[in-house]
Design a protein around this nucleic acid. Structure first.
Length: 290
DNA sequence: CACTTGACCTGTCCGC
DNA sequence: TGCGGACAGGTCAAGT
């Protein structure tokens, strides 16, 4: 589910809510969602205060004042929903806009309760997501962070670097290369399809057959799509919600994702859905030719 | 080694 | 309505 824009939206939400709050209690009903608890919980989690909330790739980092951090991956259906103690409302808009009802519910895997009575719920229908508690200094050493590629929206990420990194996978198709987190961080199925449409590249095109001119276009469309998606609060296809339980609106502005059967916004040709790199893939068959 | 496929899970939707 | 199968936004491990 959540890709870079969705995780960034959650990070922004948590950054406004969590710092300064101290954890009083942690409950879980599915051990695999938060495997390393026991002794660590008591020593470095209970009583610890949230310092900052950061993001790298699709991973959230909640840094505590105990020199430990909560490392969270939402995978396909993870949600982090914050609730004040009864009656207390946080965030913009009406609380009834939340897609999530009373919590905990049947998809709640972990519940963090803060000393002021507020709560953070980790919901995860498919149970693929996870939370780890690690010493903050060791976080960059986990396998995923050692291998993950650069942040596409960082100021020093250029079209040339995108090209160099993509071309380490010359014989695979461009969609699989974009989805490969060791090539570039944070791109998933939605924004791969959106950015390839923007650059008029067929997702099955082998990387070695893509020109520099096309790489430049892809860089421009990818960075633009990610920025717009963050502005729109991400994409809600099925499960994704922000920390208030509300949907993101990017799909109202999407060019191809979930628009099969509808006209291409450039040429009017009907958008089709196929399968590339094992994933549902949306293309304009006229704008994106092999 | 480069690349692709299956597994991890639950829930929903579609065709018979 | 019931039931089987396909599919869903991610990432690893295992397979070719």
């Amino acid at each position: 589910m959540p890709e870079l824009p969705e995780v960034e939206t959650v990070r922004i939400g948590l950054s406004a809510l969590l710092p300064g709050r101290a954890i009083a209690q942690v409950e879980q009903n599915w051990d695999k969602s938060f495997p390393n608890t026991s002794a660590d919980v008591r020593q470095f989690l209970i009583g610890a205060k949230v310092a900052t909330v950061a993001r790298r790739a699709k991973v959230l980092l909640i840094e505590l004042d105990s020199k430990y951090s909560l490392v969270i991956h939402l995978k396909m259906t993870g949600q982090l929903v914050f609730r004040g103690k009864s009656g207390e409302h946080f965030g913009a808009g009406h609380p009834n806009d939340s897609l999530i009802g009373a919590l905990p519910d049947r998809s709640t895997r972990v519940t963090f309760t803060f000393t002021d009575g507020s709560q953070l719920f980790f919901n995860d229908q498919r149970k693929f997501g996870w939370i780890r508690l690690l010493p903050t200094a060791e976080v960059p050493q986990i396998d995923f962070f050692k291998k993950v590629g650069p942040e596409p929206l960082s100021t020093n990420f250029t079209w040339k670097e995108l090209g160099e990194r993509l071309r380490r996978r010359p014989n695979t198709n461009i969609k699989a290369a974009l989805l490969d987190q060791t090539v570039i961080a944070g791109v998933g199925n939605i924004y791969a399809d959106e950015s390839l449409w923007g650059a008029k590249i067929h997702p099955s095109t082998l990387v070695k057959n893509i020109t520099d001119a096309k790489i430049k276009k892809l860089y421009a469309s990818l960075t633009a799509v990610l920025k717009i998606a963050i502005e729109k609060g991400g994409s809600t296809d099925r499960n994704y919600v922000n920390v208030e339980g509300k949907r993101g609106s990017y799909l109202n502005f999407a060019s191809v994702f979930r628009r099969e059967g509808q006209p291409c916004l450039r040429c009017g040709t009907t958008i089709i859905k196929t399968k590339v790199a094992g994933r549902g893939t949306h293309i304009c068959p006229r704008c994106q030719k092999l």
